[in-house]
Design a protein around this nucleic acid. Structure first.
Lengths: 155, 155
DNA sequence: TATTGTTATACTCTATAACTATA
DNA sequence: TATAGTTATAGAGTATAACAATA
């Protein structure tokens, strides 16, 4: 570090971490009351907003890696919230969908969670949400690009 | 949900999660190369930027709860990166500080990590970082306030 | 050969609460 | 009584890689 300009991004990282942690804490406080963990809730809402999908798609959308996803699905299956079934056209693939009980939970929990999260925004005030969102998106893209470059590089 | 205005905050939450996940992935890619986990790195940098502190302070700064912190410290102690010692003036308190080897790791790894993270910002461009940071801070505060209110409420 | 999903391993973190020693 | 830290427990997620079945 030769000058201060190079470390001007540090506060952004700190704030991003702290803000996400605050979000996660607040969000999971409610999710745990529903008897789910955050990854489990992620899966339930992803499935609930669709007609079901295979593990590959589910993994892509939730960013849960396939090995971990198997365990998460196992626990949700044990709770009777989802089913796995074979796909005739590709028998490697497993189709995952909510059971009626899972759908019922989703129908109740999803709006309840939105309502709960909305409460946090009452004190956020009238900032320019769309430009804030865009900045976040650009930052995300910067990280994605940078990670790709790293993974390409020889260790 | 009666109108779209009430769900206008949803994209923010999605972006915040995705951006943080991208950050975490990119950051931990480097941290793991140092032989540390993200919480361990958090502890090492917190200690490295100080003269040492007790577990309570360390817990407050890293947001790692005391029970978990004991385990993280155990593993860092096993690696010879930190020491725990008694405090004469309050014998309940444990003073935690980096060993010379821990200091050496910090002296090398911390600037290296900053440099690594800086790479991600090359493609971020010249946005208004300070206002972006302020928005993040306001959002964090909103979550903190909302969580406090929830914890007060009768279950 | 490549892809989908499961299994296996070993570790790490988490939440929760009981417990010890000290203040 | 309150606080600092450890211990105990049970569960859950993670990285990694090997594996079976299928394409």
């Amino acid at each position: 570090m030769q000058n201060t300009e190079q470390t001007s991004f540090l506060p952004v990282l700190r704030e991003l971490s702290r803000t996400y942690q605050a979000f996660e804490q607040f969000s999971s406080f409610h999710i745990r009351q529903l008897g789910l963990t955050p990854p489990q809730f992620d899966v339930v809402t992803t499935l609930g907003n669709s007609q079901g999908m295979n593990c590959k798609e589910l993994s892509d959308q939730t960013l849960i890696t396939k090995g971990t996803l198997t365990g998460v699905l196992d626990r949700l299956e044990d709770k009777g919230l989802l089913t796995r079934s074979m796909q005739p056209h590709d028998r490697r693939s497993v189709f995952v969908a909510l059971t009626p009980r899972g759908q019922k939970l989703f129908n109740q929990a999803f709006p309840a969670h939105l309502n709960y999260m909305h409460a946090a925004f009452r004190s956020f005030g009238e900032h320019d949400i769309s430009s804030f969102c865009q900045e976040l998106g650009k930052l995300r893209q910067s990280f994605s690009i940078a990670l790709e470059q790293q993974e390409k590089e020889p260790a």
